[in-house]
Amino acid sequence: MDIYLPIADLPVNVFLVFAMGIAVGFISGMFGIGGGFLMTPLLIFIGVQPAVAVATVSSHIAASSFSGALTYWRRRALDLALAFMLLIGGLIGTALGVWLFGVLRAVGQLDLVIALSYVILLSSVGGLMVAESLRAIVRAHRDKQAPAARPGGHTWLHGLPLKVRFKQSRLYVSVIPVWAIGLSMGFLGAIMGIGGGFILVPALIYLLRVPTNVVIGTSMVLTLVTMASATVLHAATNHLVDALLALILMVGGVIGAQFGAQAGQKMRSERLRLMLGLLVLAVGLRFAVNLFLPPGEMFSFRLMEGDR
């Protein structure tokens, strides 16, 4: 059954889009991430303009991260104080990202920046995750003793001023790196159409030493607020959010996420990290192939601003 999308201006198969929502939702539930880094390229692949895809996916991620955040909230597995501090940076970053998004669109280089960011970010983060999880798996094989769940020791980040105590996370750190992490996540999310969970979770664990039990819930709160505000800002400035597309995606997404979460609980964490790492790396490499191989069609055209 085809349905005409009012903003994307093209008909799509409802079941295909719904299935994409379920599939990405499954992965997002399994790994505790938003899944935007998969959904945005998939939408571009079925013919949605990159700008509409990025703007629309933000609302889809908001839905799945709200559903996730509520679940963690009931288990008291999130640190609201830390999330609030991350948000201060996150909202500024989102506003900056949406602004730059509009500028790049006007200059005609938005697609390149989206593609380059995907290649650089996903390949490097994916590569690091694969390497780290492989080391963990090898270590687990060699001596059966599990490594400490919380990486110990302090880094230079802990020496910065403006220190704040986060009780839930049993953490006493400067707010400067917290703000900086929030800002980068909001910025990247608005430009790339990703929630950034797959970067935020490792950043919180390895840079700030946030305990693993609160990290996913906390990251979901940040993702939720940055993506909800990205939706509002994209809609208000660029008029590119397709509510109908978003609705189909988010209904599929929240259903898929439930099954994904169940599947994820049955797996060992380092295996899970390895799979996620491979997935992230694969998407990054896919974008790299597009950039480095000669394209089949050298030309493309796009509508100039104000002519919609």
């Binding site: 609302s59 908001a62 839905a63 559903s67 509520l70 909800a228 800002l233 978003a246 988010m250 209904v251």
Partner: peptide, 15 residues
């Protein structure tokens, strides 16, 4: 935008 964001929150909450 606000309505779309609310729709996302309601969907997430219902789920």
């Amino acid at each position: 935008g606000i309505v779309t964001a609310m729709m996302a929150l309601v969907t997430g909450w219902l789920a």
